[in-house]
Design a protein around this nucleic acid. Structure first.
Lengths: 206, 206
DNA sequence: GGAATATACGGAGGCAGCCTCCGCTTTGCA
DNA sequence: TGCAAAGCGGAGGCTGCCTCCGTATATTCC
């Protein structure tokens, strides 16, 4: 408003605050993985060794806590995709491998899946964030395969992402990973150039 | 045990009991569709116009109520599949149509999807029941297409079911149905004879 | 039609989890 | 070392879960 607003440098965050934030996040991952999306938040606080008030200060809603956990997972997936993109494999193979690796990744967090399923439907912000990040990572692999003329160009990264995750959600018997990988192979074959499906509209931006 | 156990004919069920059972079921469908799987059961009772005690007598657990609603939906899907099997279309087309019709069906209950996602992971009994029923219905369509030599014979009805449902779960933006239908077309193309994917192990019985 | 009785109703009540609020403690900064 | 900003944590009000049992009502038998 007036000429010179005194720029108050904000304090650096308190050490205990940072520590508690991390503790709660870690505890939440464990508790949700075991107890599903309806697990007790007071249980999370207990597990983290903090008061319930502290939990709520850091994550004002259950949804916020979900999202924090989820985002962390997404970041790991992106990293994975980037690593895969630097290898030089035939483009379709690189693509197929990422999809398969993705399945394995989900496997290690299988307990979270119900929670994630709920999150997907509950928060479009969250899905937007993760689809954006993962979509970019996958997009690189996809573009190479398309450019090489190996697969059709009318299927977006988002389409593939949703397919992979959807298939993972639907399986949890022992051996499900193998089953999902093989179904993904069927899908990839359907994506090859020369397939007969009708045109798939490109995913609109945003 | 002894010679002639006096066969006490059981009373016919009370009219009010039957009425309340139906009311609760109906209310549950609505409430879960709107509020998701964690919606208040007392809310369901209120909506149904019965006491909470009555709700619990008919459906002793939240899970039981879920399942009752879910089974009703499954029955409708089976009926739909049977109707489709009697039409005489080219087998692959019949198959594709059922998968597409399925998407439409889910669409009308979209609100339930989070609840169903939870149910899928919560109760293997329930998934067993529905996969069995739907699998038989779809199996007929599938067998015809395989017999005609149009598609590979190593993909089970259960695989297809899970794929369809998994894709539906993952989409809820406006226009999602069209997107899912097109992704299913890609999948069907991958199933055609002459595709290059590795062998998919037949789904073991049970 | 009316009594007898099996059956169902429904809400009070104990318990657990949700979330807010605020007095007390700890930390960063000068 | 002193002090204010920042954070801590649990008491407390509220809602929902589920059980239990006194009351109400439908069915059956006469």
């Amino acid at each position: 408003m007036d000429g010179v607003t005194p720029t108050k440098r904000p304090r650096k965050p308190r050490a205990d605050s940072v520590r508690n934030h991390d503790r709660v996040l870690e505890a939440a991952r464990t508790v949700f993985a075991e107890g599903g999306p309806a697990a007790s938040l007071e249980g999370v606080a207990r597990q983290a060794g903090v008061g319930i008030g502290t939990l709520y200060r850091h994550f004002p809603t259950r949804q916020a806590l979900f999202e924090a956990v989820y985002r962390h997972e997404v970041d790991q997936l992106v990293e994975l995709a980037e690593r895969l993109a630097t290898d030089d494999l035939p483009p379709v193979e690189a693509l197929r491998r990422w999809m398969r690796a993705n399945v394995e990744f989900v496997a290690t967090k299988k307990g979270m899946s119900a929670a994630l399923a709920v999150a997907v439907h509950a928060s479009s912000d969250l899905t937007a964030y993760s689809i954006d990040r993962l979509g970019r990572a996958l997009g690189t692999l996809l573009a190479r395969a398309v450019k090489a003329g190996a697969i059709r160009d009318d299927i977006g990264a988002e389409d593939i992402l949703r397919t992979v995750v959807g298939l993972c959600y639907m399986h949890d018997k022992p051996g499900w990973q193998d089953k999902v990988r093989r179904l993904l192979d069927v899908f990839v074959d359907g994506m090859r150039r020369g397939s007969k499906a009708g045109a798939l509209p490109r995913t609109p931006p945003g």
